[in-house]
Amino acid sequence: MARDKDKRNFALRTQDGDETSVFSGGTPRQAALKAARRLDPADSEDDADPEEIRLREKGTHKVHIYEGWAWEEEAPDDKPGWMPGDITKGNVSKEGVEHLDEI
């Protein structure tokens, strides 16, 4: 497991530049996967519509841009007792990196 010093923070940005949430992860993709799981889930991965996810790395001018989607799946048979019957899974595809002029 990564130590806290290896974690980076990424702010979820809207189209108008507001930063609504912060996700942490060792890589931008890890933070994007966390953000994707908060999207409205489809019934299956094939039915999911990708949405743009923009994450600004805190302390930098970099905005990582992803296409993300989420879907619901039945939990595995060996799930712990506290886990619900359906779980939300997510996936992302990197579209690029944008550099901001100012923060």
Rank of each mutant, 00 (worst) to 15 (best):
P84I: 09
E19V: 04
K94C: 11
G25W: 00
K79H: 11
T20W: 04
G96N: 04
D43A: 14
E67M: 11
G25C: 04
R38D: 10
L12W: 08
L100C: 01
A31N: 06
I103K: 07
E67I: 06
A2P: 05
Y66T: 06
Q15R: 14
R54A: 06
P80Y: 14
K5T: 13
N91Y: 05
V97A: 03
I87V: 14
K58D: 15
A11F: 04
G26K: 11
G68V: 05
R8E: 10
R13M: 15
A70C: 05
K62S: 08
L33H: 05
P84G: 11
I53L: 11
R13D: 12
K58V: 13
D78I: 07
P80D: 14
R54P: 02
R8L: 12
D40L: 14
K34F: 07
E95D: 13
V22K: 01
L12N: 02
G90S: 01
Y66R: 04
A32S: 02
V92P: 01
A36M: 03
P76A: 07
R8M: 13
D77W: 13
D101S: 08
K7G: 09
E72T: 12
A35M: 03
W69P: 05
A11I: 03
E19K: 01
A75L: 07
M83E: 10
M1S: 12
A70G: 06
D18E: 15
P76S: 07
E51F: 06
R54D: 05
T60I: 02
K79Y: 11
A48M: 05
S21Y: 10
K58C: 14
H61K: 10
V22M: 02
K58P: 09
H64S: 01
D78L: 08
Y66M: 05
Q30S: 12
K7A: 09
K34I: 07
V22G: 01
E95Q: 14
L33R: 07
V92G: 05
D77A: 12
E95C: 14
D47H: 07
E102Q: 08
E67V: 06
A2M: 09
D6P: 03
D43H: 12
G59V: 04
D46W: 05
G68Q: 05
G68D: 05
Q30F: 03
A70P: 07
H61S: 10
S21A: 14
W69M: 13
A70M: 07
G25P: 11
R29P: 01
E57T: 04
E102G: 09
K79I: 06
P50A: 10
D16T: 12
H61I: 02
D78S: 08
A75E: 09
G59W: 00
T20A: 06
